[in-house]
Design a binder for these strands. Structure first.
Length: 237
DNA sequence: CTTAATGTTCCCCA
DNA sequence: TTGGGGAACATTAA
């Protein structure tokens, strides 16, 4: 890969360096780990995090929110990110610090990782070093499925409830992937198609609507600076 | 005009 | 050392 950058925002302070580092290198692998797109080069590699509104587009048309341009042998790869919460960084340092993949970690390992964690279950699930890749929508949905209140202390979950949470995590993500993700405002897949899972959300974005299980209104609160949706009747502390 | 948004990091405090 | 809370980042849409 030969690369050129017109980026005004990549990782703060290192974009000239990054352009130098990728110049002339060949892309050998493209994989995913947690929320990162991991690109392996013939020497070294880069990690891309799309934040909330980021996109990587092959041969797209440059828009006002194009913050990075990789010149490839046969086209361009654009990094577009209106809110600029995303990052492109040299190396896989942050990727190495991620917790296990939610669809790979077994119940035994999951339960073991929960043990001794004093924080509340919602922020713990959002912690990428605990489990990689879980975001706000899916954490709210899986806690509802498991019947666990978002403010429950992780260390106080019984073995049975930990197993429920593990099962809910796998079920929620598997179903969401089947429905190609949740398109609430910005999300589209690599082909530009919106997902449908938002239609199956049972708590996220449904404040005041009746709970699918008990009919009482879904509540919304702020937990760890994130909007948190839950059923106060079905989800127990 | 104000608020909140699919995310993460940093700082201050207990 | 761990964790909670809030601010910050930048833009858009309701």
């Amino acid at each position: 890969m030969s690369a050129r950058f017109t980026s005004r925002f990549v990782t703060p302070g290192n974009r000239a360096k990054l352009a130098r580092q990728v110049a002339g290198r060949r892309i050998e692998t493209v994989t995913r780990r947690g929320k990162f797109i991991v690109i392996g080069l013939d020497s070294g590699g880069i990690a891309v995090h799309l934040g909330m509104t980021g996109k990587l587009l092959v041969a797209g048309v440059e828009t006002e929110h194009t913050h990075g341009v990789f010149t490839l042998d046969d086209g361009v790869l654009l990094y577009v990110d209106p809110r600029q919460f995303g990052r492109i960084e040299w190396g896989h340092t942050r990727v190495a610090k991620l917790g296990p993949e939610p669809l790979e970690v077994g119940l035994a390992e999951f339960s073991k990782r929960l043990r001794g964690r004093k924080t509340r279950v919602k922020p713990l699930l959002l912690n990428q070093a605990f489990i990689a890749g879980l975001g706000n929508i899916y954490v709210d949905e899986m806690l509802f499925t498991a019947g666990i209140h978002p403010l429950t202390h992780a260390s106080r979950l019984s073995a049975v409830r930990a197993a429920k949470l593990h099962r809910a995590m796998v079920e929620t993500l598997t179903l969401a992937i089947e429905h190609r993700g949740s398109s609430i405002s910005d999300y589209v897949d690599a082909d530009g198609n919106r997902g449908n899972f938002q239609m199956l959300h049972r708590v996220y974005g449904r404040e005041g609507e009746p709970c699918a299980t008990c009919g009482r209104p879904i509540k919304k609160a702020v937990v760890a600076t994130r909007g948190t949706h839950y059923c106060p009747v079905c989800q127990k502390r």
